[in-house]
Write a protein that binds this DNA or RNA. Structure first.
Length: 291
DNA sequence: TAGTGTTTATTCGCTT
DNA sequence: AAGCGAATAAACACTA
């Protein structure tokens, strides 16, 4: 969490830390979307990707669309460590929450599920920022995986022994970032059932650990319990990312071409302008052209 | 023993 | 101000 507060002084930043500038990367993709540059410019890091991951190539760091002075400020300027901006922008914090990073990592993998370490590697391969302070953010990653219902554990198959389970996305979690806001979801995804107590949080404090079954079977929630790999296939009807604004589509479409319905955007430290594909700062209301 | 996973607590920023 | 989402820290348990 270094080098962040100084971004407030960057062009486009209001005194309140809102990001009003429309930052456009060299390929014209919004910083708020999943970087389309992922699909371009194979970089050396791709070779470090584990076999389970699809050959999506991180871009050269110099072209990273998500890192930009004045934009790397996450969470609306939330920072605890005031440190003057000195580093290259390739080491600024990407404008994605950990949840969105995990989602991206899982989503781009061929098997739609990754081990914890693979998630670490994907993030570090793509975002140099996360090559530092690994203990800090990796703890946060683990916390996010455990805490959020949108992530489910998939046990390793016997032919893939190793440490840790695979992590996948909940089949119903696909629209978490449908409004283009990758820092703050409209609503936290909760795995619900008819009683409203089916999520991980419901499991916490009642039946104990989500994964405490001695058999090693993950029982994170009622819906995850029946998750099968088929759900993780793109052609499956429950595939989480069929929304036009989904990460999957953002990653696969030319960035300037997708012009979804103007979303009603809530929450948001930063959102995507559907007309321009430019990044907007705080946008709790639908984006309209000022007259 | 290191890595993984869970849980709790705290803090912060944004929205309502 | 309250509620919420997110980031961070830390403690603890489990497991390969």
């Amino acid at each position: 969490m270094n080098s962040m507060s100084s971004y407030m002084n960057a062009p486009g930043m209001t005194s309140t830390g809102h990001m009003n500038a429309h930052y456009v990367n060299p390929v014209g993709v919004s910083h708020c979307s999943v970087p389309a540059g992922m699909l371009q410019s194979p970089g050396p890091a791709v070779q470090a990707l584990p076999p389970s991951m699809s050959p999506i190539s991180p871009p050269p760091y110099g072209n990273m669309p998500v890192v930009n002075p004045g934009f790397g400020q996450p969470c609306g300027g939330r920072s605890r460590e005031a440190k003057p901006y000195r580093r290259s922008y390739t080491h600024t914090k990407p404008p994605y929450s950990y949840i969105s990073l995990i989602t991206m990592a899982i989503q781009q993998s061929a098997s739609k599920m990754l081990t914890l370490n693979e998630i670490y590697q994907w993030i570090m391969d793509l975002f140099p920022f996360y090559r530092q302070n690994q203990q800090r953010w990796q703890n946060s990653i683990r916390h996010s995986l455990s805490f959020n219902d949108c992530f489910i554990k998939v046990p390793r198959s016997q032919d893939k022994p190793g440490k840790g389970s695979f992590w996948a996305l909940h089949p119903d979690s696909g629209n978490m970032f449908e409004n283009g806001c990758y820092l703050r979801r409209q609503k936290r995804f909760k795995c619900g059932n008819s009683t409203g107590t089916g999520g991980k949080e419901a499991a916490r404090g009642k039946t104990g650990s989500v994964t405490s079954s001695s058999s090693g079977e993950p029982v994170p929630c009622s819906q995850a319990a029946h998750l099968k790999p088929d759900h993780l296939k793109p052609d499956h009807p429950h595939y989480p990312f069929n929304h036009p604004f989904s990460i999957n589509n953002l990653m696969s479409e030319p960035p300037v071409q997708h012009r979804p319905e103007p979303p009603v955007q809530h929450g948001g430290y930063g959102c995507l302008d559907p007309d321009t594909s430019y990044y907007h700062g705080t946008c709790s209301r639908p984006i309209v052209n000022s007259t």
